[in-house]
Computed example of a mutant assay.
Amino acid sequence: MSDSLPGVGKIAKDWKSVLNPTEYAVLREAGTERPFTGEYWDTTTEGVYSCRACGTELFRSTEKFESHCGWPSFFEPLAEDRVRYLEDFSMGMKRVEVRCAACDSHLGHVFEGEGYDTPTDLRYCINSVSLRLEEKPVE
Rank of each mutant, 00 (worst) to 15 (best):
Y85L: 15
L86R: 15
L86C: 04
L86I: 11
D88K: 12
F89P: 07
S90R: 14
M91N: 11
M91G: 06
G92D: 04
M93A: 08
M93F: 14
K94F: 09
K94H: 15
V96Q: 12
V96T: 15
E97D: 13
V98Y: 06
V98G: 03
V98P: 00
C100T: 06
A101M: 03
A102Q: 13
A102S: 12
C103K: 10
C103E: 09
C103G: 06
C103I: 09
D104I: 02
D104W: 09
D104H: 02
S105N: 00
H106V: 10
H106W: 00
G108K: 09
G108H: 13
G108C: 11
H109K: 11
H109Q: 10
V110N: 04
V110T: 12
E112D: 07
G113N: 05
E114P: 14
E114K: 00
G115L: 03
G115R: 01
G115T: 12
Y116W: 12
Y116V: 11
Y116R: 10
Y116F: 15
Y116S: 05
D117P: 04
T118Y: 04
P119A: 06
P119W: 06
T120G: 03
T120Y: 02
T120V: 04
D121F: 01
D121H: 05
L122V: 05
L122K: 11
L122F: 07
